[in-house]
Design a protein around this nucleic acid. Structure first.
Lengths: 335, 335
DNA sequence: CACTTCTATGGAAGCGTTTCCATAAATAAA
DNA sequence: TTTATTTATGGAAACGCTTCCATAGAAGTG
């Protein structure tokens, strides 16, 4: 029966083994520097006591924590989760702990950047899909906190970027190649202030492709609807009830695309014959709905970010790295 | 321009303010015990230096960390995410950090229980939807790690349980009340070894309700299909191609329910007229698919777990608590 | 005004490790 | 054998903070 006392310390082990704490510590960190007999005795003591070195104490003495902070929007959206998954997996392999700092508001984000990096005693920081101000970046740099940004770019910090422009471009190109000339755009208007201008870039890329192909984009073809079934239905209905309705819709978010599809069904519009739909992100809902979409390698982005981060922790001198992750078009049934 | 030196310590502040470190510390932890003039001077010094107390050092001296560990299956499934969300939110409000330990395999789970509680120096632990062995429970208890289990029960640990039996029962009752007499059951067979026997309980409750209503459950009405669109389609098709096909299907997982719905469409079976479908969990996909389902208060479960945990951290003497969270039936379009 | 009670402060001991330095013992080289 | 190396070990400082204890001075009491 293990005692219900406080956990044993290195002193207990040392005493039990009849050596000094220094030797125990050495045994723990570089076993080959300890005599075999002593080693065995210490090992035995450790086992008997069920000793486990305390991370905090270790961290203080070592001045590194084995802990990586992850600042992320409140993770309800699957796309964040996917990224986190990638991060978690990579971190686990490197046997680092992951501390999550969910962000719910812009001011909270600010205060995080103010305090976390120092107070949290983290070895490094991953920031997911969140804008980083110059001030924050300067703080991070001046306190030497290795940092990697995902889906946002800052010149003085490492970044894993998504080529949203290219993604929008791809979507449009694909639709154009399929013969569409009347292509609409749908996205979320209420980008929370603290998030990233991703959608705008997707739109720009999309628009650019149309221009290159000499295709008009009437203002009435650009719609915004919040993440709400009914609103998206309304937007779709509006779009389709025009005199010259679009034959394709590029929804800059899978959630929207899925609901456009649903709306189309409700309106008895046949997909993809009468209406093609392309989404963005390749969430699980996209698979469920058989959505043609632009796939982001979400978990890959997380994994990559961690890799870069660890490299920079190991070698702080390393120059800032900016990586752009490629996108793929996943062809399913809606376009 | 902030210096790029190492972060200032309490000593720097003390020196700059011309006081002892004790006073600075006191000022930080109980400002009212420090004279107003001194306070101002210290405050000024802190501001100038941009001093932030280091968490590790603090933790060691305080022997608490402000950090809560969360052991959870690798969070890809939305239901886990929802729970985490609840946990994160509650933790944030209590200004505790959340350290995530994703579990990918059974052996990993074991080793976590072996090491995390001690090495991680956590104030407490939340275990999400994972079985805890007696050995692990004993460890946790003997090392005095306050712990709360979600969706699993152990006599010596705090638990937030889900009444899966009741959920299955509700689903069946609802269907029976709607006049169905031929009701099938569909679930996932490949419960990963490290997860919880949730589905079995859902089935038992379901079955019990049928028995109470004097309704037969032919063996051919009980199907298992892995989380794969095609398999679920196959299972559904099999189910419906029987001589006496069921008029309703209770899928113990929303994912399955959603895909049954999809299969029904493909098979030209009208839902809910020819086939009623009830799911379980109320994931976002359930809303998208307009699924009638049994709702778990997933984020509530997380929030509650944290509450219990914090209470037990504050007062370790408190007796073990077992809470059962209620379920609700959400009536949508599929049944 | 002498004496007690607070209050603000500093000194110093811990918290549990790591690690540098010194020393004693063991081994190798001469 | 004597001296030079190497190896195993212990002592002790350091990491940055909290907190107990002691003290000096301020405030309050009769």
């Amino acid at each position: 029966m293990s005692s219900s006392r406080t956990p044993p310390t290195i002193y207990d082990v040392a005493e039990k083994a009849g050596v000094s704490i220094a030797t125990v510590s050495r045994m723990l960190n570089s076993p080959d520097k300890v005599g075999p007999k002593t080693r065995d005795r210490i090992l035995a003591a450790i086992d008997q006591l069920g000793f486990v070195p305390k991370a905090e104490a270790r961290a203080r003495a070592l001045s590194r924590t084995g802990r990586i902070g992850v600042i992320t929007p409140f993770f309800t959206a699957p796309s964040f989760v996917q990224r986190l998954r990638g991060i978690a997996s990579a971190l686990g392999k490197a046997s680092r702990e992951m501390v999550i700092y969910p962000v719910e508001s812009y001011s909270q984000l600010g205060s995080y950047f103010g305090s976390i990096p120092l107070t949290g005693n983290l070895d490094g920081l991953v920031v997911v899909s969140l804008p980083v101000s110059d001030i924050a970046a300067r703080r991070l740099n001046s306190f030497n906190i290795p940092t990697v940004l995902i889906e946002y770019s800052h010149p003085t910090l490492n970044c894993v970027e998504i080529d949203d422009f290219e993604g929008g471009h791809m979507a449009a190109e694909y639709l154009i190649r399929k013969g569409h000339k009347r292509i609409a755009f749908l996205a979320n208007p209420d980008i929370p202030e603290y998030a990233v201008a991703t959608l705008t870039r997707r739109f720009t890329g999309f628009h650019q492709a149309l221009i290159e192909a000499g295709i008009e984009l009437p203002e009435s073809y650009v719609r915004y609807a919040s993440s709400d079934q009914e609103q998206i239905y309304q937007a779709t209905a509006d779009l389709l009830s025009q005199a010259q309705p679009p034959t394709a819709i590029f929804a800059a978010l899978d959630f929207h695309a899925a609901n456009v599809l649903k709306a189309a069904r409700r309106l008895n519009v046949c997909v993809p014959d009468q209406l093609a739909i392309v989404g963005f992100d390749d969430l699980d809902i996209a698979e469920y709905a058989d959505l043609t979409t632009i796939r982001q390698h979400l978990d890959e982005s997380g994994r990559l970010a961690v890799e870069i981060l660890l490299a920079h922790i190991a070698d702080p001198g390393r120059p800032v790295q900016h990586v752009k992750l490629p996108l793929t078009l996943v062809e399913r049934l809606t376009a």
